[in-house]
C-alpha cells in the first residue's frame, strides 16, 4: 500500500513536470535554446521514470524476499496438498495475480523479451538450475572416467613418428627451378602507351 502511495506521489511529480514540459513546448520552441531546454526536461523525465520504476520494483522484491525466506514462524502443517483455486471468483483473481507476478518478474529475470537475446538468457537461466549428481552424470557421460588410462596407452598404436624429409625452405629457395617467375604484365604502365594499345589488342585477338 505504501508502495502504491509512493508510486502515486512520484507519478504526480512527473505529471507536474509534464505540465512544465507542455508549457515550455508551447513557448517559442524554434530557437536552439528552447529546444535544448525541452530536451533537458525530457531527459529528466525519463531518468525520473526509470528511477521510480526501479525503486518500485526493488521495494516489491524486498518484501517478496522477506516474506519468502526461511523463518521458524513460517512453518505450517498442511492437511492434504495445496492447489490452485478452481472457484470462478478465485480463479479470476489467481489468473490476474499470476499475470502481475510474471510481469513484475519478467524484466528482472529477462531483460530483453525479443529475439536472440531472450533465447540466450533463457538458456543461461536454464543452466543456472541446480543439478543433482544423477543429472550431472547424465549430462556429461564423456567425463565418466572411472579408471584413469595410463599415459603410455594413450599413444595411438602404430603411429609413425613425424620426420622432416626435407629441410625447411629458406627465403632464397622459395623460387627454385620448377617455379620460374613469370613476368607479370602490368596493364597501365609501359603498355598503356596509346601507340602500343592497338598492337596489344590485335595480338590478343589472334590468341583467342
Amino acid at each position: 500500500m505504501n508502495n502504491q502511495n509512493e508510486f502515486n506521489e512520484n507519478m504526480t511529480l512527473t505529471e507536474n513536470q509534464a505540465d512544465s514540459l507542455k508549457l515550455s513546448s508551447s513557448m517559442e520552441t524554434e530557437s536552439p535554446h528552447d529546444f535544448n531546454r525541452v530536451q533537458e526536461l525530457v531527459n529528466q523525465l525519463e531518468s525520473k521514470i526509470q528511477q521510480i520504476n526501479s525503486n518500485f520494483s526493488s521495494n516489491i522484491m524486498e518484501k517478496v524476499y522477506q516474506k519468502s525466506t526461511q523463518d521458524g514462524s513460517m512453518k505450517q502443517v498442511v492437511e492434504g496438498e495445496v492447489y490452485v483455486g478452481k472457484n470462478p471468483t478465485l480463479a479470476k483473481f489467481v489468473g490476474n495475480a499470476r499475470r502481475e507476478m510474471v510481469e513484475t518478474m519478467k524484466d528482472r529475470y529477462f531483460r530483453s523479451t525479443s529475439g536472440n537475446d531472450k533465447k540466450e538468457e533463457e538458456s543461461s537461466n536454464i543452466n543456472m538450475a541446480p543439478m543433482n549428481q544423477e543429472q550431472l552424470e547424465e549430462s556429461i557421460p564423456s567425463l565418466e572416467l572411472t579408471s584413469p588410462i595410463p599415459l603410455k596407452q594413450n599413444v595411438v598404436p602404430n603411429s609413425v613418428p613425424l620426420e622432416i624429409s626435407q629441410p625447411p625452405l629458406k627465403p632464397e629457395n622459395i623460387f627454385d627451378d620448377e617455379m620460374e617467375e613469370e613476368p607479370v604484365e602490368v596493364f597501365g604502365t609501359q603498355n598503356s602507351n596509346p601507340e602500343n594499345l592497338s598492337e596489344i589488342y590485335q595480338d590478343r585477338g589472334k590468341a583467342v
Binding site: 525466506t69 518478474m105 519478467k106
Partner: peptide, 26 residues
Amino acid sequence: SETILVGLDNRDEVDYALQLLVQKNL
C-alpha cells in the same frame, strides 16, 4: 506422514523459484 509449508532457505532460492514461475508462464 506430514506435509508442511515452509519458507525458502535464502534469496537465491527465491530468485530460482521466481525464475521457474516466469519461465513456466512465458
